[in-house]
């Protein structure tokens, strides 16, 4: 009998492998592949004799991760600022990172793009790029830290998210804000982080229009959170009291992901 440890490792390794392969296939091929790997998975489960302990382990780890969300929420200080750096320290070229390769980057048409707003807000009208550009702007050079461990200093500019949230009359007592992106990515953040003075609806990188690689036309930039919490190509956002999860978060990355 395999140890629950080994089982756990293989199950997660399989899941990761499946994701990695799926990433390299086009949409119909991906669906096919996922379907086959899913049935392979169920077959393995039929033969496995300690799936229950595997599940118990998974449950325990997920439970502790939820506990770590609460701990991070508690120690998050809304007034503590992430360090800023001189522009000379900006990393060139700045690394590209996403759940797909750089040749898969979505081209969003900025002239027709509109940010959809919904949920617990007073004003649900959509916003064009020009309208966002007309709001007060700020820019900051901060360190982007990836969950993988590497970091790179970059400069993002745009609308202070707090200004925008006040403009649309968002319920500031709500717990979460969810984001959906043009590349099918999705994530969500806590309201205190959304209101943090360094949280930006970024329209520029290094003082130039945000390039497609870094999330044109708009990304949410938070130097108080890990990279995967910073959505690119944002198409819509909603204010809610139900945790919307996220692309990586639903697979096991810690939800709060704070720095």
């Amino acid at each position: 009998m395999k140890s629950p440890f080994a089982k756990k490792v293989t199950a997660q390794a399989d899941r990761h492998l499946i994701n990695e392969v799926a990433k390299r296939l086009d949409a119909p091929a991906r669906r096919q592949f996922m379907k086959y790997s899913m049935s392979l998975g169920s077959l393995a489960m039929l033969t496995g004799c300690d799936t229950s302990s595997d599940e118990a382990l998974d449950k325990m780890l997920t439970g502790i991760s939820r506990f770590n969300d609460r701990v991070q929420w508690a120690i998050f200080n809304p007034d503590r600022l992430a360090p800023t750096y001189p522009d000379s320290m900006i990393k060139v070229p700045f690394p590209f990172n996403a759940y797909y390769d750089v040749d898969q980057v979505r081209e969003v048409d900025g002239s027709t793009w509109k940010l959809e707003v919904s949920g617990l807000v007073a004003d649900k009208r959509s916003w064009t790029l020009a309208e966002l550009a007309a709001l007060p702007q700020m820019a900051q050079t901060t360190r982007h830290i990836c969950v993988e461990g590497w970091s790179a200093i970059g400069r993002w500019g745009g609308v202070p998210f707090r200004t925008f949230l006040e403009k649309i009359g968002a319920d500031k007592t709500a717990r979460y804000i969810g984001f959906k992106c043009a590349d099918d990515y999705f994530t969500s953040i806590d309201m205190p982080t959304a209101l943090h003075p360094q949280t930006i609806m970024a329209l520029t990188f290094a003082d130039h229009t945000l390039p497609a690689d870094f999330g044109y036309p708009m990304k949410i930039r938070m130097p108080t959170k890990l990279g995967y919490k910073n959505p690119k190509h944002v198409m819509s956002m909603f204010v809610t009291n139900t945790n919307p999860g996220g692309y990586w978060e639903d697979q096991g990355y810690n939800w709060f992901g704070g720095s």
């Binding site: 756990k8 997660q12 899941r15 780890l61 502790i64 993988e148 990586w248 697979q251 096991g252 810690n254």
Partner: peptide
């Protein structure tokens, strides 16, 4: 098994 799983273990 993968980065996410390892981080769960590490932070537990």
């Amino acid at each position: 098994g993968w980065l996410g799983g390892a981080i769960q273990w590490h932070f537990a």
